[in-house]
Simulated scan of single mutants.
Amino acid sequence: MKKKVLFSREEMTRLSVEALRSRGVTVDDIAEIAFKQQARYTENIKFETCRESVLKVLSLRDIFHHVLLAVELDKMAEKKLFEGPIQDIIESDLGLFGVDEVLGLDVARLYGVIGMTNFGDIDVNKHGIVSKLNEDGKKEGIVHTFLDDIVGAIAASASTRVAQIINEDIAQEEPHKKVSLFDQ
Rank of each mutant, 00 (worst) to 15 (best):
F64G: 01
E43C: 01
R21F: 15
I170C: 05
G120Q: 03
V179C: 00
E140R: 10
L6Q: 13
A34H: 03
L110R: 13
L6Y: 11
L15D: 11
V179A: 05
Q87T: 01
L60R: 11
V124A: 14
K138N: 13
I154M: 04
S59E: 02
L181F: 12
R40I: 10
N134F: 08
E32I: 04
V67L: 07
D29P: 06
V179H: 02
H66Q: 08
A19K: 04
L94Y: 00
V71K: 10
G141K: 00
E52N: 15
L60C: 15
A171Q: 09
D100V: 10
K2R: 13
E135G: 00
R40C: 04
V162G: 01
E101G: 08
G104S: 01
A34D: 05
M76K: 13
A70R: 01
Q164F: 12
E101D: 06
H176A: 14
R14T: 15
I142C: 14
T42H: 05
S59H: 03
G152R: 05
L94Q: 04
D28W: 09
D123F: 12
M1H: 03
P175D: 11
E135T: 13
E83N: 08
V25E: 02
A70M: 02
E140W: 05
R40S: 12
V143W: 04
I129A: 02
S92G: 05
E168A: 05
E43H: 03
T117A: 10
D93Q: 01
K56W: 11
I86Q: 09
R23W: 04
A156M: 07
E11V: 07
D29K: 02
K139D: 05
V162Q: 09
T13K: 15
H144V: 00
K75S: 02
S131E: 08
E101R: 04
K177I: 07
V113T: 09
I30K: 10
H176C: 14
V27K: 02
L181Y: 05
G104Y: 01
D28R: 07
K36E: 14
V124P: 06
A108R: 06
V107S: 09
D93L: 00
R161T: 04
D121C: 13
R14C: 09
F35L: 12
T26H: 05
S53E: 14
Q87D: 07
K126Y: 08
I142R: 15
N118I: 00
A34K: 02
S22H: 03
C50T: 05
K178E: 07
F97Y: 08
V107H: 06
I150Y: 05
V5I: 15
V113F: 15
S22N: 03
I129E: 09
I129P: 04
K36R: 15
S8E: 09
A163F: 02
D62T: 01
A155R: 07
M76A: 07
I129Y: 07
